[in-house]
Amino acid sequence: MKNMKKNKEIQIRMEEKKRILQGQEYEVTELYIGKKKIGEILAYGVKDFQAFMDDEAIGSNKTFELAVEAIIRQWNLHE
């Protein structure tokens, strides 16, 4: 039988911030694991949530939850 890696529970903390981009104020949610910021979600509109990692856009999502999943998926690939 092969050794299987166990899935670890990961606590993700979210912080809400306001950020002004090109003269307009947006709501930004920062995602943290421990003290390390792993990504940000910028709410452009009702169904437009941009996901960012290290200031690089990783895609647009129709819901906040999908944007969170996209960041976690990318983070898992790089860890």
Rank of each mutant, 00 (worst) to 15 (best):
N61M: 08
E16Q: 15
N61V: 04
L21N: 11
F52I: 01
R19V: 05
G45C: 07
E79I: 09
L66F: 11
R73M: 12
F64T: 02
I72W: 02
E56N: 12
L42R: 04
G39T: 08
K62T: 15
D54P: 09
I38Y: 02
M53S: 11
M1A: 07
L77S: 08
K5L: 14
A43F: 00
E40S: 09
A51E: 11
K18A: 09
A67E: 01
K5V: 11
K37A: 06
E40T: 05
E9R: 15
H78Y: 10
V28L: 08
E65R: 03
L21E: 15
E69D: 08
A51Y: 01
H78R: 15
D55W: 06
K2V: 08
Q50P: 04
L77H: 09
L21H: 12
Y32M: 06
V28N: 06
R13A: 13
L31E: 02
I20T: 15
T29F: 13
K8W: 02
R13F: 13
M1N: 09
E25A: 04
E25W: 00
K47L: 12
N3R: 15
K35Q: 10
A43Y: 00
K35L: 13
M53D: 11
I38K: 01
K8R: 14
D54G: 09
R19T: 10
M1F: 04
E56H: 14
K47H: 12
E65H: 06
N61G: 03
K17Y: 04
G34F: 11
K5W: 13
G59I: 05
G45I: 03
I41D: 10
F52S: 05
I33T: 05
I20M: 12
E69N: 01
V68C: 10
K6T: 09
K17W: 03
K36L: 04
D54L: 04
K17T: 03
S60E: 07
A57F: 12
I58E: 03
E65V: 09
E56S: 13
Q24R: 12
I72A: 08
K18P: 06
K5I: 10
Q22M: 06
Q50N: 12
A43N: 03
G45N: 03
E79N: 12
K8I: 05
A67S: 00
K2M: 04
I12M: 09
I71A: 05
F64I: 01
Y44G: 04
I12E: 07
G39C: 08
Y32R: 01
K17L: 01
A67Y: 00
Q11G: 10
N7P: 12
D54W: 07
F64V: 00
E69G: 01
N76V: 14
V28W: 08
T63R: 01
I38E: 09
G34Y: 08
L31I: 02
R73K: 15
E30K: 00
N61Y: 13
K35I: 07
K18C: 03
K35S: 10
K6G: 11
M1D: 04
E16T: 14
F49H: 02
Q22T: 02
E69Q: 10
L21T: 11
F52W: 10
D48V: 01
G34W: 11
F52C: 03
M4A: 11
E56D: 13
K2W: 12
I41Y: 02
A43Q: 06
F52T: 02
